[in-house]
Design a protein around this nucleic acid. Sequence first.
RNA 1: GCGCCUGUAGCUCAGUUGGAUAGAGCAACGGACUUCUAAUCCGUAGGUCGGGCGUUCGAGUCGCCCCAGGCGCGCCA
Length: 554
Amino acid sequence: MKSRIEKLLKLAVNELAGRDVLSDPGMVDILVEKPSKKEFGDFTTNVAMLIASAEGKPPRDIASMIVNTIRDSHVDIFSSVEIAGPGFINFRVSPAYWVGVLKDILNNKDDYGKSAYGKGKRVQIEFVSANPTGPLHVGHGRGAAVGDTLANILKATGFHVETEYYINDVGNQMNTLGRSVFARYLELLGRKLDFPEDGYQGDYIKDIAEEIRKRYHDDLLHYSTDEAVALCRDFASDVILEGIKEDLDLFGIKFDRWFSEKVLHEDGKIQQAIDTLASRDLVYNSDGALWFRSSRFGDEKDRVVRKRDGTLTYFASDIAYHMDKLARGYDTIIDIWGADHHGYVSRMRAAVKALGGSERSFHALLIQLVSLERAGRPVYMSTRKGEFVTLREILDEVGKDAARYFFLMRKCDSHLVFDLELAKKKTEENPVFYIQYAHARICSILRKASEMGMVPDVDGADLDYVSKGDDLELIKVLAGYPSLLVSCARSMEPHHVSFYLLELAGLFHRFYNKNKVISDNKELSLARLCLVDAVRQVLVSGLSIMGIDAPEVM
RNA sequence: GCGCCUGUAGCUCAGUUGGAUAGAGCAACGGACUUCUAAUCCGUAGGUCGGGCGUUCGAGUCGCCCCAGGCGCGCCA
């Protein structure tokens, strides 16, 4: 609807320009939005004011010319088009149009809300990408929920999406993992060895050591330390990665691709990336290290890719990894990182640009910290001591649905306070419960109707019965669903879906308390069954985009 | 010191290229079950949009300067 009005406005503005009333029609973006007050109508635009300030003419005059042009085009979807305030043009859409929307929803079923906005462009989205040195914690959970939901939104709006998890399975932290596990292994065999200073402290390290002891008994004592550490490292990495996959599975997340950093090394891709940069004179030697001229591409300073000791930096792998992504020909690359990596964004963007990616093809979304509370009291976490709260613990305590909803109820770059008690509550205080309850209520109504021999039937019902009052309010919110998804896709902000569903559920609960769906009025009942079925459909659709179940009975 | 993010009702937060009298949920207070699920709903109250200056017809939104909190500024990952 919104885009339809935008097209009409564009035609009108172009026509005025053709009649020399206006000079340059292309200079303003036409934007239609929802007015701040219901009294102002269903849609509004400020184009007249924008043109007026560009042309130096009175806004209301421009507005009236636009309105007359639209009236002349004999479009019958409006019940009124008015000029208001300083020069807004307000549109009120006719009831017949809204009824058409309702039919559209019911006929399109699960496809309602989907659009071709993305035009099939290929988007690659990488998220979680936690090192296989320990289980996923709460922060990874937020990144996972945001990434997966964004992927779903982009799919629904016509993008071709691929999701990917990058495994940092090489480097110092992996050796530290190996040494930590080996130390615990020796401990199990009664040998005392100093635990590495920077070692991983969690109990899961001990569990892994125990598994190694069960399988290899004391064999490792006969290995060289390097061999033993390497075995522990690889064993632990495999076990932990399996655990991560299990956790993600419980969280409802499947990746299209798991990309190993180790493979990049083995295939010589990192050297290739450096060679590529070198061939463009974008690296140089200094102080015995090899530097990438990232400052030429907007970074604050140049960055080292090969250290003086000959080893490669983490950044070098990332350059190679992103070169690989670019080679795969995506139109857009989205990386989702923890907010503590924000210092990394400009150098990564520089690398992408240096490798031929466009300014707009690379996006880094930063996920702010999650702090946990239990009924208002903070739950403290310390990764260093291994006392972090894992994603698994959250899932075990509050369940997948609540966890996913809570992770998505804030803009991703604001801090999130996750209250575990609230997430478990079965009352209206808990938004995810409130939304699911609305869905279950509708299912209950549909069951009852079905027992009475009534089913929602678009063609059999006279939908004019629901084209006014509270019924119409529901249709209007349902009608906004497709453009909501487009707006989420454009801004890459999935959190709006959670707000939308809360609004829709609230509107339904109010409707329910005020109006009977099944009543003595058979015609009205049949029409309202269609209406609530449409609400149910959109609730299911929105929840499924967020990866949340829609129970039929609660 | 430099950079990024955040600052909106008691709490947690929305607010889409600058637009009409700044919104929601929770908490608080007062009400509604002979009912398709009261696990819900209705009503009341709640604000110097961190502060200041500026840009303009118009600023929560843009610019500059302060204040507060978080994070980042390695040949660490």
